[in-house]
């Protein structure tokens, strides 16, 4: 029905830019950004971690071998920061898992307005961590914060100052982190729970399984892959935690909430400008995270294969 010449000009029009060229036009900007902002810094910082470079001096980097790594790993203070980070990650991810999974179990039952409730619950994780840190600082404020009031303290006298008390500050940060990120765990668990077909529960009811037995033998194993992914993501994030803590405590009081990432920031940018050493620390954190992730992923695969 189409005239032959018109058809061929149409094809010529397409040939002016080939599919291949279009692909490259779309990919190139992203590729350039990725190389400049991710890949180059990744390798440059690896190089810097073996030098004594400082970003505010004009001196060129001098190769010092493993001196930065040796210094960091022999520093007891650094081990303490890692311990604090580990404790923070354990408490925070643990509570997020429990609360997130619990909320998912509740929201899995459809009730009037469950859609709206789910959306509302998701709001905290959409906020900026710095903003969250700032307003939780106000919530924890010993003189006018609502947190102590909700705990039953009617007067600031004798009420705990969460962010200024050594053994409470880490808990304060954990509570805030749990408030912010439990919804994330809930979201993944909820999609996992919704994917479990009803007939499995029908079969289990016929098989005379109690609710607890059904939960243990059907719900938990079925939701486990997604739950583990949520835990993996949260663990990685917890080890990198910086903005929330920086906004709330800045690592204080003393070094009670000095997480590795906070210390890293201080080392790299605040007064010290020890770029080489900070790069080495960043690589240590990276190796720790990769190691932990591997443990999780191995478990995840084990669960998937059974």
């Amino acid at each position: 029905m189409t005239a032959f010449p018109a058809d061929s000009t149409g094809r010529q029009g397409q040939r002016q830019i080939s599919d291949r060229a279009i692909k490259w036009i779309f990919i190139t900007p992203t590729l350039i950004l990725l190389i400049l902002l991710n890949i180059f810094p990744l390798f440059y910082s690896l190089y810097l971690s073996f030098t004594d470079f400082s970003a505010i001096t004009k001196d060129p980097p001098v190769w010092v071998g493993f001196a930065n790594f040796g210094k960091l790993l022999n520093d007891p203070q650094m081990w303490k920061y890692f311990a604090t980070t580990g404790r923070f990650a354990f408490l925070s991810v643990g509570l997020q898992t429990l609360i997130g999974f619990g909320m998912a179990l509740i929201l899995r039952e459809k009730f009037n307005g469950s859609g709206i409730v789910t959306t509302l619950i998701l709001i905290p994780m959409m906020l900026s961590p710095v903003v969250v840190g700032l307003f939780w600082k106000l919530i924890y404020n010993p003189s006018f914060g609502i947190f102590n009031y909700l705990l039953g303290y009617t007067s600031p006298v004798g009420a705990p100052d969460w962010l200024a008390t050594g053994n409470l500050a880490l808990w304060a940060v954990v509570i805030t982190d749990v408030w912010m990120w439990s919804p994330f765990v809930m979201l993944l668990c909820l999609s996992g729970l919704n994917a479990i077909p009803d007939y499995l529960y029908e079969a289990a009811a016929i098989d005379r399984a109690s609710s607890w037995f059904q939960f243990r033998r059907i719900t938990l194993p079925q939701v486990m892959p997604l739950l583990l992914i949520a835990v993996l993501f949260r663990t990685i994030e917890a080890f990198k935690s910086f903005d929330l803590v920086m906004g709330m405590t800045g690592g204080g009081p003393g070094d009670a909430t000095e997480l590795v990432a906070v210390n890293l920031y201080r080392m790299a940018f605040q007064g010290q400008w020890r770029t080489g050493q900070a790069s080495a620390l960043a690589y240590i954190v990276l190796i720790v995270i990769i190691a932990i992730s591997n443990v999780y992923i191995r478990n995840l695969n084990k669960i998937r294969e059974g």
């Binding site: 499995l200 029908e202 079969a203 009811a205 059974g306």
Partner: peptide, 21 residues
């Protein structure tokens, strides 16, 4: 409840537990 009726049910789509042997 189904579990109190002492009946077995064979489902059309098998309804086997996929994560168990």
């Amino acid at each position: 409840h189904p579990s109190e009726r002492d009946i077995a049910f064979v489902f059309q789509l098998f309804a086997l537990y996929p994560h168990m042997s």
